[in-house]
Design a protein around this nucleic acid. Structure first.
Lengths: 148, 148
DNA sequence: ACTGGTGTTCTACTAGACCATAACAATTCA
DNA sequence: TGAATTGTTATGGTCTAGTAGAACACCAGT
């Protein structure tokens, strides 16, 4: 059973933090189909948030096909982001750890690392991104009628 | 001269995005002391935001001692964040890009990549704390203080 | 059928972010 | 000196996301 934690000082809204935690848990294999998420009221108490806030998070997850809410029983994991083989995940993890160690040797702090990651991701997506992405770009794509 | 871009769909407020971009540019060596930031009015036009919004960002940076605003001339970088050799930075960048490509192949999204990075960083610092825990827990605290 | 757990809906409040506008102040340079 | 460019302050308003409280709806075990 996943345990949520909400940081109110974070600029990320509470509901989004919950969503993020579930997604990460799924990706890392800490949650899998069949598992039950904490009851709405439990999260309300443990994280000191409103039921609507929790619900908003669960709804977003449900809308994404990751969980399924069953009234009277609870909210259960149905989907999986574990499209990543545990083996691949392990390989990626060690590979990243090695790179991080190298970065540390060069004198990079945590924030430096994150900044670099962000930059590389942005650069990569900017290069590989010709059409449909998300947000405003979607409208431009719709106008062109291009969708793979 | 740094070029700003603001994503209104992002949950992060516009002014915070500007701050973040400057900080990251500083860390990556794209900005260095003496460089000038775009004029407030320029950002107003290029990012379609209000002058107050830009000001809020510049003020926050100034408050952090990273830039200095000179009325009549502009806003200039005064501080620095990461002093990494350009050569090392380039090497790390390509290494990371290679790893990211591998992660993409395995099916990871941007957020998943970031999550994994965060996890590895946390795991690594946790390991370092365990080492330092042998007799001197205060060093761990000092390390965390240095991060902030 | 009762009961206690569960998800759900409705309505409304609030704080923060944002914008529009305008005027003001300091610096630079012709 | 005067014009242009820059940052700064101030006012006042709008909008939206996030959140809250209370009541409702459904299900399973007893």
């Amino acid at each position: 059973m996943i345990e949520f934690h909400v940081d109110r000082t974070d600029s990320l809204p509470a509901y989004a933090q919950l969503v993020k935690q579930v997604r990460e848990a799924l990706r890392l294999g800490l949650l899998k189909p069949g598992d039950r998420l904490p009851a709405v009221r439990d999260v309300v108490v443990s994280c000191t948030v409103n039921a609507n806030t929790v619900l908003k998070a669960y709804r977003e997850l449900e809308h994404g096909g990751l969980v399924e809410a069953r009234q009277g029983s609870g909210t259960f994991v149905t989907g999986s982001l574990g499209a990543v083989e545990p083996h691949d995940m392990a390989r990626l993890r060690t590979g990243l750890a090695r790179w991080v160690a190298e970065a540390r040797t060069a004198g990079l702090e945590d924030e430096d690392v994150k900044a670099l990651v962000t930059a590389v991701l942005a650069e990569e997506s900017a290069a590989a991104d010709r059409d449909a992405h998300q947000g405003a770009a979607r409208q431009a794509a719709a106008r062109q009628g291009a969708k793979a």
